[in-house]
């Protein structure tokens, strides 16, 4: 009888300790949750864009429109840092990388001799295989008017090797850039290209402005 009593006492003591620890942990987890919810800075782009999104309020906690997307980040590649090492083509978890070459027509000079299209030293400017720099022939060249040619990228063929980007930024206007295409990107917790990017060009940008296509590498809002 006595033994039973002590056992009960031990049990209840144990039970008390357990509920105490449980309570403490719950408080801790709740604190973590509250902190993530409240203690965040506005992720909206600065300037007029920010005003548009959340009417200039300093904190997302008071801003209903941005709570859901607050802190949502996606991977993107900053073309101003990119050195076109070619790893985007090989290091993505997806076969046929999520990084593709993107052409910015507004920056394009519509050159007849495009260094993003032709092999260096190409003499005959036609789209024969020996003249093209793209290993998969993903760039299309179309005559617009003398002496201008339009270039477009077939993303289903582009492997993101960046050879054309290298040529265009070295000798041309730099209208070709590599970008993470968000219809393909699975947004890994840690981007496996970013991990091995030698020039530290990958960073997480706000999901509301997921592309870095402007010359100054500001984010492009959708």
């Amino acid at each position: 009888m006595n033994e039973l009593k002590t056992r009960d006492a031990v049990q209840s003591r144990r039970e008390f300790l357990r509920s105490f620890l449980r309570g403490a942990l719950l408080v801790g987890l709740a604190g973590l949750g509250v902190r993530t919810l409240l203690g965040r800075r506005c992720q909206a782009a600065s300037g007029s864009e920010r005003m548009k999104l959340c009417k200039g309020c300093p904190d997302v906690a008071f801003c209903s429109s941005a709570v859901l997307s607050a802190g949502r980040k996606v991977w993107q590649l900053d073309p101003s840092k990119c050195t076109q090492c070619g790893r985007c083509a090989t290091h993505c978890v997806l076969q046929s990388s999520a990084v593709k070459c993107v052409h910015r027509p507004a920056q394009c000079g519509y050159c007849r001799l495009c260094f993003g299209f032709f092999q260096p030293g190409a003499t005959i400017l036609n789209s024969a295989a020996e003249n093209q720099i793209c290993p998969t022939g993903a760039i299309r060249r179309k005559f617009v008017e003398e002496p201008y040619y339009e270039y477009t990228i077939d993303e289903s063929l582009c492997i993101g090797c960046g050879r054309c980007v290298k040529g265009c930024s070295a000798f041309g206007n730099g209208s070709l850039v590599l970008q993470v295409r968000h219809d393909r990107c699975v947004n890994c917790n840690e981007c496996s290209i970013a991990r091995d990017c030698p020039s530290d060009a990958f960073r997480q940008v706000s999901a509301t402005t997921p592309y870095l296509l402007k010359p100054g590498a500001e984010s492009v809002a959708l």
Binding site: A128, A129, E130, P135, T136, G137
Partner: peptide, 14 residues
């Protein structure tokens, strides 16, 4: 001859 070879090889490779 060489350009033809490149074209063929390129095709095969792709």
């Amino acid at each position: 001859a060489v350009t033809d070879k490149i074209r063929d090889l390129d095709q095969v490779v792709r």
